[in-house]
Design a protein around this nucleic acid. Structure first.
Lengths: 213, 213
DNA sequence: TGGACTTCGTTAAAAATTTCACGATATTAT
DNA sequence: ATAATATCGTGAAATTTTTAACGAAGTCCA
């Protein structure tokens, strides 16, 4: 059995998301071409991706939506629920705590941490905010998988160090700086500025702008 | 002159961000190896990327930080400021309006839109909130480049339609659904759930979890 | 000044990813 | 039952991206 690429796994989550919403419709089957139209990709890409997870399609008919969804989800996530903790309960951190998709979708926010004493012991959307002193104990007790950094960039490396020391192997870093971590820890950076600027450059947005000036 | 890949451009923004912060230090030069150590990548990757933008390095010494920064920025962005509008002033939208990196970094939030009448005409962080009826006129008058979708997923396609009709060619979509747009419009999807789940699967986070159970 | 050393820039090789082409298989209509 | 049609699954080709290898060019120190 071949290794499944990172890209395929990312796309699989998009497929799962889409299939779940299609479940509400009356149709039971969907073809790779129809799914590609919805997602703005190609039928081959989709068939190729799905092929890594097994033979679930019916030639001449397509994929049974429910079956495909459960196949993908079981294959990728097994029965796992991803348990995360949040660092930094500012504007972004608060938005994440209130994000309606978490606690569905197999993601559970276990706890939040903040250095501001006024926030400690409060709850947002049912999630308790702890002092940074409690990081190690909470993470150990609650079997956390991933840490989210949503603190000001000046503190992000310190928080990263805390996360690493507590033994977590995955970090989502919203701070607009690079953080240094050991090789066995994976960091996913989300820098809003860069997302916007790269979109601007990598599309015909810039071209449209030139025309308008 | 060869075309510069999307990946290289994305990384270039990370280089720019890092070089800007290095400018505050006393050193004037940095080698590709040193920069790679900061960013968790390789020296070759960095030299290769930079080579697309010209010959700015000094063999045996490295890159002059200030020169490299300005070279990259001028090459990629010229003098452009990216002008964006926000749709949806909920938790996430508000966090974006208050995001401290915007209005630095060549990104300017021009206006926000919301369907809730109570929010209309208010300002957040200096950005005025308009009714959705004003979309077309504001976008035209203000020379907007990119639209940000931060509305509930049920409304995201409608908002996308508004954005397309107003003539924008770039969309950042935070709603966890795929939106359909014409081919000349580029969409960058940011689905927090998927980012977390993919990090979980594409790293040794899942492995660590198995061990702990 | 000269020689050892460092680091760049680039061509070539390797790896990863996407696209193509098409045989296989189920469906549907007659 | 059979033919026509639709759609899957996949090996091979094409493309893109990363990594390796190394000559060229500047630095630094005796």
């Amino acid at each position: 059995m071949k290794k499944i690429s990172k890209k395929t796994i990312e796309r699989a989550f998009v497929y799962i998301r889409t299939l779940k919403s299609l479940l509400k419709d009356k149709e039971d089957y969907i073809s790779s071409q129809e799914l590609a139209d919805i997602l703005g990709t190609t039928d081959v890409q989709i068939r190729k991706d799905i092929s890594y997870f097994g033979k679930v399609g019916i030639p001449g008919k397509g994929y049974e939506i429910r079956e495909l969804e459960t196949t993908l989800e079981k294959f990728i996530l097994q029965k796992n629920i991803v348990r995360v903790v949040l660092f930094g309960v500012g504007n972004l951190g608060t938005a994440l705590l209130k994000y309606p998709e978490f606690n569905k979708d197999r993601i559970k926010i276990i706890a939040a941490f903040d250095r501001d004493n006024r926030k400690i012991d409060k709850k947002i959307n049912g999630v308790k905010i702890y002092s940074l002193k409690k990081v190690s104990s909470v993470i150990k007790k609650e079997k956390v998988d991933i840490g989210i950094i949503a603190v000001p960039k000046e503190c992000s490396q310190n928080v990263a160090n805390l996360i690493v020391r507590a033994g977590l192997k995955g970090i989502v870093n919203f701070a607009p700086v690079s953080i240094q971590v050991p090789d066995d820890v994976t960091v996913k950076n989300i820098d809003f500025s860069i997302e916007f600027l790269a979109l601007f450059c990598n599309s015909n947005v810039a071209k449209a702008k030139q025309k308008n000036l």
